[in-house]
Each structure stands twice: as structure tokens, then as C-alpha cells.
């Protein structure tokens, strides 16, 4: 399984990321997930989220999740994930995930699982930056 992980501080460029896709003749599904920063945190308007990562551990834990994903969905042929850290303004992307697989079922299931597990074990935190217009 191809795997690619990036933890970046600059804005995500979806066009560039998409151009990096590789898919075999057996691939029938390419799933993209984009997580963007909401303008509210609870009932408060915010301007941005400030993400902090314990980066060496985050990379290590993502690697373990990719291993587990490959075991659980062996037909998934590619997983690429980019997480932005630092200040991410409202409306901009903090997370980009791409799954390539033969069929849509394992792409949707594995993507959902990967993001759920990321939110459980990967040491990244966010802090609201107040001041949005709502």
C-alpha cells in the first residue's frame, strides 16, 4: 500500500495534492476528504484554530494507523494524509485525506475509520482564536 503523510504549516493546495495521485488499473474508487475550519466553536464565533502537534509522536502514531488500515482493508492501494498545524483561518483546510481502492465500500469505511482513530490517538490539539464575525 502506498502511504504518504505530511504535517505542514502552509495552506493545503488541493490541486497539487490531486496531481500526486497514483492509481493502478485495478482501482475503481478515489475518495477525498477535506476538513475545513468552522467559524464557530460552541456558540462563539472564531477567526481561526491554532493547531499544535507533538510531531514525532504524531508521525509515529499515523504510521501505526496506516499499518492497521492496511491489515484491515488489504485491497486499499493508497492512503495519503496531510494535516496542517499552526494557525488555520476559518474556511481553510486543516486536513486532507485520499484513499484509493478497487471499490467505494472499503474507501469510505477505511477513511471514516482513519479519521476516527486519528481523533483518538494522534497527538494534535487545537485552540480557538477568537474574533470571528460568526
Amino acid at each position: 500500500m502506498r502511504r504518504d503523510l505530511q504535517v505542514v504549516r502552509e495552506p493545503l493546495d488541493e490541486d497539487v495534492l490531486r496531481r500526486g495521485r497514483s492509481a493502478s488499473a485495478g482501482a475503481g474508487a478515489v475518495l477525498h476528504f477535506l476538513g475545513i475550519v468552522r467559524g464557530t466553536e460552541g456558540s462563539d464565533a472564531i477567526r481561526a484554530l491554532d493547531y499544535e502537534a507533538f510531531e514525532p509522536m504524531a508521525v509515529h502514531q499515523f504510521g501505526k494507523l496506516f499499518d492497521a488500515l492496511e491489515q484491515r482493508w488489504p485491497r486499499v492501494e493508497s492512503v495519503r494524509l496531510v494535516h496542517r498545524v499552526g494557525i488555520v483561518p476559518v474556511g481553510e483546510a486543516s486536513l486532507w485525506v485520499e484513499i484509493v481502492s478497487p471499490h467505494r465500500g472499503e474507501a469510505f469505511e477505511s477513511c471514516q475509520w482513519l479519521i476516527d482513530e486519528m481523533k483518538r490517538v494522534v497527538p494534535i490539539w487545537k485552540k480557538a482564536v477568537p474574533g470571528g464575525s460568526g
Binding site: 493547531y51 509522536m57 486536513l95 481523533k119 497527538p123 494534535i124
Partner: peptide, 24 residues
Amino acid sequence: EYQNADHRLKNGDEVSLFPPVQGG
């Protein structure tokens, strides 16, 4: 690596404490 309270420490270990994670 995550560890439990009964994990035996060694001299020079680097321990990290943090609240629940919130990536995404």
C-alpha cells in the same frame, strides 16, 4: 508510545503528558 501507570521507567526517559487529542 502511550503507556499505562505500571510502565517501568528508565533513567533518561522522555515522558509526555497531554489532554485528549483533537486533530482534524
